[in-house]
Design a protein around this nucleic acid. Structure first.
Length: 475
RNA sequence: GGCCCGUUGGUGAAGUGGCUUAACACACAUGCCUUUCACGCAUGCAUUCACGAGUUCGAAUCUCGUACGGGUCACCA
């Protein structure tokens, strides 16, 4: 049996949204499930869209997601190069082979010619199809034009009738009428291949067995199959996956910031959580399991269970999965994860490391992503506390001032600053002020933290420190 | 406009002709726990699978039609 090989083939734009990543995940899982290889190929046949550093960016992203790239531009295997612009000469050879066998032809039409044809089609309200006029050129005419140095492209010659069957693992058989197939360009006038042509040639040359791609390519696949047939090559298994839509049900766009993997990562979503979430978007396992390690995914993934319809990206579920992964971390790992976010806003270089450790631990169960820590710990870093109207109203009730001043007295008397002694102070306040429950804890909480909600009061007071507490009790 | 794909709750979805009075999870609501929020726990949340016909003893599941949504029709990928 043939070794399973899949490929992730992005354009080097320096940006990866969630939909692209999900495709990569599916490709990776199919390869690894079958003990196969996962290949990275850079599709940069459009020279105008190249972005510097994009390849590093792609490697970084895949590395963060813990994907092992078996072959790619930075770790070439025996099918290189893995960057299409470096393979330029290969494609022309194959295109000419097709010309010789009558499956493709030179076309000398200029952009103006084409625009004219396109306009006519538009007026007739028809889909634009190149009329194939250059396929009628005689050998002599072609040679003369070539000799004169006229610019040309090479187009694939489509059959005029019949239909082409496309087999897709999730969609089944799709019949495409050959009449709607355009004599697509294989080689552009700058000598570079088009995406569609380079794709077919490279997938064959690199022995790719499974092609996973967006369902917007489904229509094009007939042309691919015709190409494979013309060459006498084996057609790969196709899997066309539906789109990932934004939370509003519309297409993800670059403007939609949270649709980008890097943006999510920078907000403190863990790559394994993102991968876990994305694999569940458009795919479901046989069981009810929702949290998957990479090894489990490799074991469980079955491409036949990929959904046909598109799905919406839902941050809330991502939050849930991410918080699950955060809770699972051990304290050391969690600390290292959360500190960079803390440092984005607060200068903690002069703070006691144990203070920071305990502080951050207090919130381990309540943050759903790294960046949440910033707002959560604010009360420990700001000097002034502002009360909102609800809090002020609470503090205006009878007896509150009395409770506070009694509490202050006990706090002042603490010599050994410990959680235990703080609790004793609270207990003493309860007895002396003769208040309990909410009327006891809430005034203290609001006075020392400026908030009605927060983590354990004793821990909070302990971490704030005696000086800070007294300062706030006095204000 | 032609062609292609899709349509189960707010979201992800299970379901492949009778074990479905449609799983499970997120979200939401309520209750319990708790000094508060969160965590955790418990309960509730689609009389119905876009709609209409048909096939069948029986349909979310099969067929056809309609509607709606998306995709595609580049010397972009």
């Amino acid at each position: 049996m043939k070794t399973v090989r899949t490929r992730f083939a992005p354009s080097p734009t320096g940006y990866m949204h969630i939909g692209n990543l999900r495709t990569a995940i599916f490709e990776y899982l199919i390869a690894k499930k079958n003990n196969g290889q996962f290949i990275l190929r850079i599709e940069d046949t459009d020279q105008s869209r190249k972005v510097e550093g994009a390849i590093d960016f792609i490697y970084k992203t895949l590395e963060l997601c813990n994907f092992k790239i078996d072959e790619g531009p930075q770790n070439e295997g025996k099918y290189g190069p893995y960057i299409q612009s470096k393979r330029k000469d290969i494609y022309l050879k194959y295109a000419l082979e097709l010309v010789n066998s009558g499956k493709a032809y030179y076309c000398f039409c200029t952009e103006d010619d084409l625009n004219k044809m396109r306009k006519e089609a538009e007026e007739k309200k028809q889909a634009f199809l190149y009329d194939g006029r250059c396929s009628k050129l005689t050998q002599k005419e072609i040679e003369e034009k070539l000799k004169r140095g006229e610019k040309y492209v090479i187009r694939q010659k489509m059959p005029k009738d019949g239909f082409t069957i496309v087999n897709d693992l999730v969609h089944g058989e799709v019949k495409i009428d050959n009449k709607v197939l355009d004599d697509q360009i294989l080689i552009k006038s700058d000598g570079y291949p088009t995406y569609n042509f380079a794709n077919v040639v490279d997938d064959h040359l690199m022995n790719i067995t499974h092609v996973i791609r967006g369902h917007e390519y489904l229509d094009q696949t007939a042309k691919y199959n015709l190409l494979y047939e013309s060459f006498g090559w084996e057609i790969p298994t196709y899997i066309h996956v539906a789109m990932v839509l934004g939370s509003d049900g519309t297409k993800l766009s670059k403007r939609n910031g949270d649709a980008s993997f890097m943006d999510l990562y920078n907000e403190g979503y863990l790559p394994e959580a993102i991968v876990n979430y994305l694999v569940l978007l458009g795919w479901s396992p046989k069981t009810n399991q929702e949290i998957f390690s990479m090894d489990e995914l490799i074991k469980e993934f079955d491409p036949k269970r990929i959904n046909k319809s598109s799905s919406q990206y839902d941050v809330k579920k991502l939050n849930w999965i991410n918080s699950h992964y955060i809770k699972q971390m051990n304290d050391e790992k969690y600390y290292e994860f959360v500190i960079p976010f803390l440092e984005k806003k607060y200068d903690i270089s002069k703070r006691d490391i144990n203070f920071i450790r305990n502080l951050v631990k207090l919130y381990k169960n309540s943050i759903s992503k790294g960046i949440d820590i910033i707002d959560e710990v604010e009360l420990f870093f700001k000097d002034e506390i502002d009360l909102n109207s609800e809090e002020k109203e609470f503090m205006n009730q009878d007896g509150i001032d009395n409770t506070i001043s009694i509490f202050k007295k006990y706090i002042e008397n603490i010599n050994d600053w410990s959680v235990e002694n703080i609790n004793t102070a609270i207990k003493n306040t309860k007895n002396e002020a003769n208040v309990s429950g909410k009327m006891l804890y809430m005034p203290i909480r609001i006075k020392v933290s400026g908030q009605m909600h927060g983590p354990e009061l004793d821990e909070t007071i302990y971490l704030l420190g005696k000086d800070k507490i007294l300062e706030r009790l006095n204000s």
